[in-house]
Design a protein around this nucleic acid. Structure first.
Lengths: 207, 207
DNA sequence: TGTACATCAGTGAACGCGCGTTCACTGATGTAC
DNA sequence: TGTACATCAGTGAACGCGCGTTCACTGATGTAC
């Protein structure tokens, strides 16, 4: 429909121009609002971008391919943010500060983007086929936690649990706090979440 | 539609008979399959029960009222199961066994009913209005965890955290492990989940 | 006991909606000669 | 330089679908007399 027949000026020949990226960005915005993969409709995306719905098919085979493309971007953004936060902490105060900074940034991200967060971790990944599970982007995030905790352990701290288990429990604990506080009618306060994050780190780094 | 015009024999006059309950049960089954409140369609419920879709309106004002009724049942079932599991443990081996039994049963419930579990804790409760949040059934479950942990603390164990914070972190940690393992392409193994549950209890009951 | 009638549970058909997707098209951008 | 034509990005109209909900109905169950 596109605003009363106002036709979009076509892109140059070189590979469809930026429309593909515009579609991904708009779809990401809509997905972050709905918080569920089913909540995304191609027609809504087209409305948001200002194009006709069938134009999406020039860049994506079908709905699910668009969803996969968006999810890849979203996970990538979270992983990059976590790595950057940890690097800041490392530079400022060593591995433990790196872990703490990373956990705090994780809390901020989840509280400020609750729907996007739920979309990433609160929903079955049904559009991802079984054979792609091996290189699912979430593995990268699991590795980030493990590295951050390993760095602490090898810098003098000793844990009562193997670091592999401890890193799973630390991430899961954070996720649990954030998921429960954003999904249920509690108060999704970032300061509260960060307090729990500090408690968790204290528990899992206990000498 | 109802199976080629085969008409359901009407209930006795005394308050609509069991159809209301049949509808709730069928809707619960469908919700537990879909794992999202949006996934429930009145027409699907009608098909499942074997009645015409408009018949649902004899017992529920609209779709959201049916959803609320189902959710109430579901939370009630979980709370009852948790309380029963804890009582079994208490009788067998005291408060710590009660807590452990309760945590194990929680893991089994979540792993065996992943969609139902996600429905309860992995999804925004958008159909519940703000003023009903105060007596949201989930508060009862939070209290169960707190009581179970308090009983351990007062029976000789001392925690490094206030029991209120510890009980939130224990529940959240369990929830995190279960939510991540059922939502992501990991292996949702009940033995693995119970192992993590034991680790968490050990950490939060550390002397 | 029988009969007229109110009452209630449940129904079929229809409404308007937004959706994913297909199809034949339009018109600008580039290329061949 | 000019002109015919292939190519590509984007479009409007239409399809069939399942949905929530409304409406006037059907027919059995109960009640009044």
């Amino acid at each position: 429909v596109a605003e009363q027949g106002r036709r979009r000026v076509p892109s140059r020949w070189g590979e469809g121009g930026g429309l593909r990226q515009e579609i991904i960005v708009a779809a990401g915005r809509l997905l972050a609002d709905s918080g569920s993969e089913d909540g995304l409709s191609l027609r809504a995306v087209a409305r948001e971008v200002g194009i006709a719905a069938p134009s999406i098919y020039l860049h994506f085979k079908d709905r699910s391919e668009l969803v996969v493309a968006v999810m890849r971007e979203v996970y990538g953004g979270l992983a990059a943010g976590l790595a950057a936060a940890r690097a800041r902490g490392l530079a400022k105060g060593g591995p433990e500060a790196g872990l703490r900074e990373m956990a705090h940034w994780y809390c901020v991200f989840a509280v400020e983007n609750p729907r996007r967060y739920r979309l990433m971790f609160g929903v079955e990944q049904n559009t991802v086929s079984a054979e792609r599970a091996a290189d699912h982007p979430v593995r990268e995030i699991a590795s980030l936690w493990r590295e951050a905790l390993e760095a602490c352990a090898s810098s003098g701290r000793t844990d009562r649990l193997p670091v592999a288990r401890a890193s799973v429990l630390l991430w899961a604990g954070l996720h649990g706090v954030l998921a429960l506080s954003t999904a249920l009618p509690f108060d999704p306060d970032v300061a509260v979440a960060r307090g729990y994050a500090d408690d968790l780190i204290a528990v899992f780094l206990a000498e």
